[in-house]
Design a protein around this nucleic acid. Structure first.
Lengths: 160, 160
DNA sequence: GCCGATTTAGTTGTGCGCAATTGAATTGTG
DNA sequence: CACAATTCAATTGCGCACAACTAAATCGGC
């Protein structure tokens, strides 16, 4: 990025800043998110889970069993993403998917015993991630708060 | 999320917190990143660009022309992602890709006149995004600083 | 009770993002 | 100079994430 420091200011002033890569907050967000992704991939390798699959298991460990719809709400994923993902988790013997007797459109996802046992091994994961992130707790809290706010704002703007 | 507030604390204490979805900083990051993605998709629709393509154009508007390798470094994307992406941008007539005469392994990416003209229409995009994000400048700065730090830490941990 | 409107999960199609691999070009070493 | 090591972009394969669409089930209004 040394090259970038030498970049002369464009005479257009404010407009030039607006379109500089490093001014795009979303780029920083994206870069951080993907950097986390890399560290998670290493940490989750032994569990045989991808990061999105790990998130699914987190929710199921927490809730026990959930309809796909609610799983999607918790994870902010639609059925286009979840359906094949759950299919692979089921193929791996970690969850079962069953039609709800109360509403046959609904499918309940339940961890198998094997899927529940995986939780023990998963305890090391957040510790590794926190260590890699290297931020004090206060900063993590501030980060999470800012992220939550901006996500809520973006959701509101998208719904408008 | 009202259901979540009723979730009794597990007797395991700290361990239970570690694996709660809402405690995963990366989930907040991911959710925010994807929420941005949605707003960008709307904002970029008229330009006919996806968000990653828009980032590529940002860099090229800034630099004029770059080898794929440097483009990848700026955007933190590997050639597996960039190669097809640039191929589509070239097919859309927005960039050209040429082998460097100095090193034939290297490919220089240059915006076409049409690609350069697109910059004018792109000026509205960051404004729309900033409005949708709804954070004061101070908070945006704090957010970017935190993200930069955590990304650097994660990179260091990944390289270890 | 009937039927239109809505909901739910699943499918199709597209564009990513990453790991592994490949072929050609360049670099580095003896 | 010869050749091993490294570099660069492109390709292959896989798992996501989203938009659009589908079929079946359920809801709501008359």
């Amino acid at each position: 990025m040394t090259r970038h420091g030498e970049n002369p200011r464009s005479p257009r002033g404010e407009d030039a800043d607006l379109l500089l890569l490093d001014q795009q907050i979303c780029f920083s967000l994206n870069a951080a998110s993907r950097a986390f992704g890399g560290v998670y991939r290493t940490a989750l390798k032994d569990l045989g889970l991808t990061y999105p699959q790990y998130l699914v298991m987190l929710v199921l460990w927490e809730e026990g069993a959930l309809p796909v719809k609610q799983l999607g709400e918790r994870l902010r994923l639609d059925s286009g993403t979840l359906s094949p993902l759950l299919k692979r988790l089921e193929a791996a013997g970690l969850v079962v998917r069953e039609r709800s007797p109360e509403d046959e459109r609904s499918v309940i996802v339940t961890p198998t015993p094997a899927g529940r046992e995986l939780r023990e091994g998963a305890l090391a994961v957040p510790r590794r991630i926190l260590a890699a992130a290297g931020l004090p707790l206060d900063d993590l809290r501030a980060l999470r708060e800012l992220l939550t706010r901006v996500t809520a704002n973006l959701d509101a703007a998208a719904g408008a």
